[in-house]
């Protein structure tokens, strides 16, 4: 086991190095850089930056240096000093920007995961045990609602409806009056009012996949001989279901964890943009749009390593959860 993990870690480092390079290259694929964008933006408003101003910007951010020098500076700073550079747009260290958003991203992802499971597991079990029934169809249609509606639109519509009919302040996580206020009961209530829309929209987006996995694996398991035998021996249905099949059916959901860790950030991006949640997704999007190199590259690297870690962890978890899987096969 130790050598297996060791080997996997070694490959992971290799992949990370590649990823950092690709991340840096991909961002520079579009022509121009942050300063060009900035200049264009200003000119659209009729403001021409003086040469001296442009020079100051170039000196400050170094975007005009050759690719390999910029890359080398960036990556060595990360490795040697853990310094991810500074964002030109925000004029702040990248680590700070990601840091203040990552917690919320994780909180939102975890809570939406709970929502997903709460909706998906009952529906999945019911429709696997009652296939082709009206309940099966209704459950599945409901479970697929989130998948079948474009998330950005659903979020906007819900935000609108909640404001119009409940008077809940749309967007963000707090109403202005509680933004700065210290934590209090009222502030918690205010937060609660802002959570349903994102949790529901992001949560239901994942239920469909979960339901399908659960339904199909569970149906497979229920057809197996050990279940048939158990049933023949008169084991009660409820007990029969929870003894083994469900445990086995949960396995594929564990491997779904891999995607989940990466999805912490990418999955909710669109919804977060519409709802103006201060998570990592919108940060990446605007950084890419504005060609804010340091943020974009660091975020891609960061998300990439989360994804790689996720795969590794879920592979290891699978081995632990399901002893039938051997390392040899995994490799």
């Amino acid at each position: 086991m130790a050598s297996y993990i060791g080997r996997r870690l070694f490959y992971m480092v290799l992949l990370l190095i590649m990823l950092s390079f690709v991340a840096f290259a991909v961002i520079q694929l579009p022509p121009g850089d942050w300063i060009d964008n900035f200049i264009y933006y200003m000119e659209r408003f009729g403001v021409t930056l003086d040469e001296s101003a442009i020079e100051a910007l170039n000196k400050r951010w170094g975007f005009k240096e050759p690719f390999h020098i910029q890359y080398w500076k960036w990556i060595t700073n990360i490795i040697v000093r853990g310094d991810f550079g500074e964002s030109a747009t925000h004029n702040r260290p990248v680590a700070e920007l990601i840091g203040e958003r990552i917690m919320l991203s994780i909180v939102i992802s975890l809570s939406t995961m709970v929502v997903t499971y709460i909706i998906a597991i009952p529906i999945g079990i019911y429709s696997a045990t009652h296939p082709y029934s009206v309940g099966d169809y209704t459950g599945v249609v409901f479970g697929f609602m989130g998948l079948a509606t474009p998330n950005f639109l659903l979020a906007l519509i819900l935000m609108f409806l909640f404001q119009r009919y409940f008077g809940w302040s749309p967007g963000g996580l707090f109403s202005p009056e509680y933004l700065v206020a210290p934590w209090s009961f009222a502030k918690v209530i205010d937060l609660m009012k802002h959570l349903p829309v994102p949790l529901f929209v992001i949560g239901t987006a994942g239920t469909a996949g979960m339901i399908r996995v659960l339904r199909t694996t569970l149906m497979d398991e229920l057809g197996r001989q050990y279940v048939v035998t158990a049933r023949a021996k008169g084991v009660r249905e409820g007990r029969l279901l929870f003894k083994y099949p469900i445990r086995l059916a949960i396995n594929p959901m564990v491997s779904g964890l891999a995607g989940l860790l990466a999805g912490v950030v990418s999955g909710e991006a669109l919804v977060s943009i519409v709802l103006s949640l201060p998570t990592v997704g919108p940060l990446l999007l605007t950084a890419l749009l504005e060609q804010d190199l340091q943020i974009a590259a660091s975020l891609i690297l960061f998300l990439g390593s989360l994804g790689l870690f996720g795969t590794l962890i879920s592979d290891l978890l699978l081995v632990v959860v399901d002893p039938r899987i051997r390392f040899e096969k995994q490799m």
Binding site: G167, G172, L275
Partner: peptide
């Protein structure tokens, strides 16, 4: 002065229409 950062234009618009 409190400047709340609402990145999305539509959400911002909703807030303004709602009198926030």
């Amino acid at each position: 002065g409190l400047i709340q950062i609402i990145a999305d234009g539509e959400a911002r618009r909703l807030k303004v229409i709602g009198g926030e």
